[in-house]
Design a protein around this nucleic acid. Structure first.
Length: 239
DNA sequence: CGTTTTTGACCCGCGC
DNA sequence: GCGCGGGTCAAAAACG
C-alpha cells in the first residue's frame, strides 16, 4: 500500500478552503509554487473562522507566497525532475479550475457550481459526525461544521505525507468514477480530523484531498526546525 | 500482539 | 415510502 512518501513532492498544487460556516463560506483558491513541496505544506492546518479575518483578502494576507489562481486556460505541462522514481507533472486544466471554485462539501458538487442565490441553500447540511454519534448526542446538536480544506495535487501516490498519522476507516466507490474514495481519520485520540482522498475522474493523475476539522495537536511526525521555519508564514493560518 | 487495513453492513439524507 | 448514493462502523484479516 502506498504509505506516506517523501516522494510526493509536488511541482504544483492547488487548493481550496472554506471556513466554518459552510454556507456563507469564504473560499479561496490558490496554487502553490513549485518551490514549495508537500513536506513543507505538511504543516498546513485547516483553519477555523477564528483565525481568519473574514473580510480580508485571503490570498494576500494568509498566503503571501501562494499565488491566487485566476480562471484561465493553462496548457503548460512541465515534466518534472523525478523524485526517487516517481515522476510528477505539473499540469493545469480549465476544468480543474472550475472544480476548484465549486463547493467543497461534495466533490461532485465541486464540479458543478450550482449555488446561485444566497437564499436558503442550507439544505445540504452534511455533518462531519457519524450517524451513531449523531444518535447518541441527539440533544447536543452541533451545527458548527468543521472547517474544511481541500486541494488537489498531481501525484502518483494517493496518500501524501502531511506530517500527521492517519488511519483508514473506509473506502467507497463513488458513482461515475473508477477510482475509490478513501476515508481517513487522525490516529490521535481526541483529534477528530478526517481526510478524504480520491482521484479525479477526469484526470486520474490528480489526487483530491479534503481535510475536515482541526487538529488539536501538532504533527506527530516531527519536523525539523528548518522546515518549520520555512513554513512559518503558513503556520499563522494553518496548522 | 498491538495497530492498521479491508470490506460488507448499516445509517442517513435526499429525490422521486 | 422507497431506492440511491455517500459516509461510517466494526469484525476480520493483514501487517510489522
Amino acid at each position: 500500500m502506498a504509505s506516506t512518501t517523501s516522494q510526493a513532492m509536488l511541482n504544483q498544487q492547488q487548493g481550496l478552503f472554506e471556513n466554518e460556516e459552510g454556507s456563507n463560506a469564504q473560499m479561496g483558491f490558490f496554487s502553490i509554487p513549485p518551490n514549495l513541496n508537500f513536506s513543507s505544506l505538511g504543516s498546513l492546518k485547516a483553519f477555523g473562522s477564528s483565525s481568519i479575518p473574514s473580510s480580508t483578502n485571503l490570498s494576500e494576507t494568509l498566503l503571501p507566497s501562494l499565488t491566487p489562481l485566476k480562471h484561465r486556460e493553462d496548457h503548460s505541462i512541465t515534466t518534472s525532475s523525478d523524485f526517487g522514481g516517481s515522476q510528477l507533472l505539473s499540469l493545469q486544466r480549465s476544468t480543474a479550475n472550475l472544480w476548484a471554485w465549486g463547493e467543497v462539501s461534495d466533490d461532485h458538487e465541486c464540479l458543478s457550481s450550482k449555488r446561485s442565490n444566497g437564499g436558503d441553500d442550507r439544505h445540504h447540511h452534511h455533518m462531519g459526525v457519524s450517524a451513531m454519534k449523531m444518535k447518541k448526542m441527539k440533544a447536543i446538536r452541533r451545527k458548527v461544521r468543521e472547517p474544511r480544506f481541500c486541494f488537489k495535487t498531481m501525484s502518483e501516490v494517493d496518500v501524501l505525507d502531511d506530517g500527521y498519522k492517519w488511519r483508514k476507516y473506509g473506502q467507497k466507490v463513488v458513482k461515475n468514477t473508477q477510482h475509490p474514495r478513501s476515508y481517513y481519520r487522525c490516529t490521535m485520540d481526541n483529534c477528530r480530523v478526517k481526510k478524504r482522498v480520491e482521484r479525479l475522474a477526469e484526470d486520474p493523475r490528480m489526487v483530491i484531498t479534503t481535510y475536515e476539522g482541526r487538529h488539536v495537536h501538532s504533527p506527530s511526525h516531527d519536523l525539523d526546525q528548518d522546515s518549520q521555519q520555512a513554513s512559518s508564514h503558513l503556520n499563522n493560518f494553518f496548522w
